[in-house]
Amino acid sequence: MDINMTLLGQSIAMLVFVWFCMKFIWPPIMNAIEERQTQIADGLAAAERGQQSLDKAQAESEDIVGDARKQATTILDQAHARASEIVAEGKTDGAKERERQVAAAVADVEQETNRAREELRGQVSAIAVASAEKILRREIDATTHEDILSKLAAEL
């Protein structure tokens, strides 16, 4: 337990180790730690910025989807309105067509009736003339009394 040269040796050894540590160990490790600290801080800041822009984008996309939904509803409503309009139009068109056809049929029928009536009238007058001829054969010539006969036919 005497004090001897070991003391001096240990002092020198210690100063050498401390010098080495100060020169070659401490600075690179400290630099690396500090550099990584800034990197991590930057990374965290970037992540936060990313989160913020993501939130913004989400809000925007929700807006866009909402607008689109609104537009779609409007378009759907318009389509419905247009469809009922078309149906209504069809109904009116159909009714008109029906009326037109009914009117045409009625006109046809009238025409036919008139034609038939004319024919009948002709036949009746012919029959009348024939009967009158038969009656008057003996007394009246058909040609002399033609004006009276046609007058009679027109009156029928």
Partner: peptide
């Protein structure tokens, strides 16, 4: 002391921010 220098010196040599 050399063990200390060796362990820490090796780490210091390889030290990087990665």
């Amino acid at each position: 002391g050399v063990v200390f220098i060796w362990i820490f010196g090796r780490a210091a040599k390889k030290a990087s921010a990665g």
